[in-house]
Computed example of a mutant assay.
Amino acid sequence: MTDHMNDVHALSGAYAVDALDDAERARFEEHLRRCPDCRAEVAGLRETAASLPVQPAAPPPQLRDRILEGIETIRPLPPLTQTTADVVPLTRRRLRPAPTSLLVAAVAVLIAAVGGAFFLHPWSSDRGQVQETAADKVLDADDATRITEKLGDAQATVVISRSEGRAVIVTKDMPLAPDGRTYELWFQTPQGTMQPAGLMPDDQDATVLLDGDASDATGVGITVEPDGGSPEPTSDPIAFFALAT
């Protein structure tokens, strides 16, 4: 079998998900009329793909190239062309459809090639998603209490929910920390000590879920610390939010 024919057979996966250009589609459809094995494989791929719960989304521009690269690693060999030396009598010859496992693997490669377009938001990490959910619970809690402080032209608001045991800080127009420094958050304990509660991002407008249990906190402070933060404050807070107990 020639490389030209191998190339045509290898287009079945891309054809099944409409990832061919006009010239390749016309070429493959011409081949499809003469190849029952490819017709069976395309039908199987489409049936398997249709059974997967995928939310519609516009595929990325590089989808076609990634499909064609990936499909070569899992597609079964093209159908063999019988020669006069090994012709099998028609009564004994049976077409063998592509195994289901290979069809499923092919569809898995196609979906993997699409990447985040269908399933993931590439701008969100797992930790970010957890924090966002917890922050929303605090902001929407029935017992949420808000304390706002002005920092020059900036504004910061601490929202605490005792029932959730968490606190959130929301900043607006917050100036960025100086080079080599970072803003660090702290919980003040009933004993008056300061416990680390996370670092602020380099973002003027941010919503940050504080680390740790806020159930007994009597205040929230912000200090300027060396990059990476400190185990305890190295300077007085630039802002302090007294929490009602």
Score class of each variant (00 low, 15 high):
Leu139Ala: 11
Pro61His: 07
Gly116Asp: 13
Ala134Trp: 13
Leu103Gln: 09
Leu103Lys: 11
Ala135Gly: 13
Pro59Trp: 06
Gln82Gly: 02
Pro76Phe: 10
Leu110Lys: 04
Leu68Ala: 09
Pro89Phe: 00
Leu68Ile: 14
Lys137Leu: 10
Glu72His: 06
Gly128Gln: 13
Ser124Gln: 10
Arg127Gln: 15
Pro79Glu: 03
Arg75Met: 01
Pro61Met: 03
Ile71Trp: 01
Ala135Tyr: 02
Pro99His: 09
Thr73Arg: 12
Thr91Ser: 08
Glu132Met: 08
Pro89Met: 09
Ile111Tyr: 02
Ile74Asn: 07
Leu80Ala: 15
Leu103Val: 15
Gln131Cys: 03
Thr81Asn: 09
Leu95His: 09
Glu69Lys: 14
Arg93Ser: 08
Ala85Trp: 05
Ser101Val: 09
Val87Gln: 12
Arg66Asn: 12
Leu103Arg: 04
Ala141Gly: 05
Gln82Tyr: 01
Leu77Phe: 10
Thr83Met: 04
Leu110Cys: 09
Phe118Ile: 15
Glu132Thr: 12
Val109Gln: 10
Pro61Cys: 05
Gly128Ala: 08
Phe118Thr: 15
Lys137Ser: 03
Gln129Leu: 14
Thr100Tyr: 01
Thr133Tyr: 13
Thr73Val: 03
Thr84Gln: 05
Gln82Cys: 01
Pro97His: 09
Asp126Cys: 10
Gln62Leu: 04
Leu80Asn: 04
